[in-house]
C-alpha cells in the first residue's frame, strides 16, 4: 500500500468517504446552527452559517419547567444507573471468580443463561407493574443493574489479574469485600471504564421504559419530552403539557421549529461530550465481545 498504483481509485475513494462524512455530520450541524439562529431569520432557511447569532433559544427553553426538570431526571438516571450497573456487575463478576463460592457453577450459569432468552414485552410490562415499579424512579435503575454480558466481560478481565496481590491482602486479614473495593475494582478500571461509558449512553438514550410505565410528570426523561414536543398533536391532546404555539407566543420570538431544534441539541450534546471517551473504549469493548462470542 505504499505507492499509489491507481489514482482514480484513490480519488474516488476519498470522494465517497467525504460524501459519507457529510451525510453523517451535516444533520447535526444543521440542528446546531438552527438552534443558535434567531428563530425569525431561521424560518426563512439556514443552511451553512447561523443567522443573527443568539443564545436566547437556549436560555428561554431552559426556563421551561418541564425541560430543566426532565434534564435533571435524565442526568440522575444516567449517573445513578451507571454507578449501580458498574458496581453490581463488578461485584458479581468478582464473586463468581472465587472458587470458594458455594454453588459457583450453578450461579454462573443462572446469570449467563439470561442472555439467551427474553420473556417478551408484555410479561415484562406486567411484572414491572406487579413489583411496583410503575411510576417509580427505580424502574430506570434496577432492571439494568445486573447484565450478563457485562459480567462475562468483567469476569474474563478479573481472572487475568495476578492472584498474588489478593493473597497477601488475605493474609493481612482483609475480607472479600475489602479486597474487591481496594484491589480488584481499581485494577479493573480499563474494563470498568468501557462498561461505564456504554451503560451511560444507553441510560441517556432510553425512553421506552418511561413511555410504557411512567406517566408521572415529575419522572419524565428528556428523550420523552422531546418526543412529545415533536408530536405536537399529542401535546395538544394532553392538557398537562404546554401547547407549542402558546410557548411560542408567551416567550415571543420562539417558533415551534426552533423549540424542537434547541431541545434536540440539548438531548444530543451530552452524547457528544462523552463521545471522546466512547471512542477510546468502544473498539476495545467490541473486541472483547467478539472474543466472547
Amino acid at each position: 500500500m505504499s505507492k499509489v498504483n491507481n489514482p482514480i481509485f484513490e480519488v474516488l475513494n476519498y470522494l465517497i468517504q467525504i460524501l459519507f462524512v457529510l451525510i453523517c455530520l451535516y444533520p447535526f450541524y444543521y440542528i446546531f446552527i438552527y438552534s443558535i439562529s434567531s428563530p425569525q431569520e431561521a424560518i426563512k432557511g439556514v443552511y451553512l452559517l447561523p443567522t443573527n447569532l443568539t443564545l436566547s433559544n437556549y436560555s428561554q427553553i431552559m426556563q421551561l419547567d418541564n425541560i430543566s426538570w426532565s434534564f435533571l431526571i435524565s442526568m440522575l438516571r444516567t449517573i445513578v444507573g451507571t454507578l449501580v450497573t458498574v458496581f453490581s456487575c463488578a461485584l458479581c463478576a468478582y464473586i463468581v471468580t472465587k472458587q470458594e463460592l458455594h454453588f459457583r457453577k450453578i450461579i454462573y450459569r443462572y446469570i449467563v443463561i439470561t442472555m439467551y432468552f427474553n420473556a417478551g414485552l408484555i410479561p415484562w410490562y406486567i411484572t414491572m407493574k406487579m413489583i411496583g415499579l410503575q411510576n417509580n424512579f427505580l424502574l430506570y435503575v434496577l432492571p439494568s443493574a445486573v447484565g450478563a454480558f457485562y459480567i462475562i466481560l468483567l469476569k474474563t478481565f478479573i481472572e487475568q489479574l495476578p492472584a498474588s496481590l489478593e493473597e497477601s491482602a488475605m493474609l493481612d486479614g482483609a475480607n472479600y469485600f475489602t479486597i474487591f473495593r481496594k484491589i480488584v475494582f481499581p485494577l479493573s478500571m480499563p474494563i470498568i471504564a468501557t462498561i461505564a461509558v456504554f451503560s451511560a449512553v444507553s441510560q441517556w438514550n432510553s425512553w421506552t421504559d418511561n413511555y410504557f410505565l411512567v406517566s408521572d410528570e415529575r419522572l419524565q426523561t428528556l428523550q420523552m419530552i422531546l418526543y412529545n414536543y415533536l408530536n405536537e398533536a399529542q401535546i395538544l391532546a394532553s392538557s398537562n403539557n404546554i401547547n407549542l404555539n402558546d410557548v411560542g407566543s408567551n416567550m415571543k420570538r420562539l417558533t415551534p421549529e426552533s423549540i424542537k431544534m434547541t431541545i434536540t441539541m440539548i438531548v444530543t450534546v451530552p452524547i457528544m461530550l462523552v463521545y471522546p471517551f466512547l471512542q477510546r473504549y468502544f473498539v476495545k469493548g467490541l473486541m472483547l465481545g467478539a472474543i466472547k462470542g
Partner: peptide, 9 residues
C-alpha cells in the same frame, strides 16, 4: 450513539 427520537427529530 443517538437515540431514535433524535433521528426522528
Amino acid at each position: 450513539f443517538v437515540s431514535w427520537i433524535i433521528v426522528y427529530s
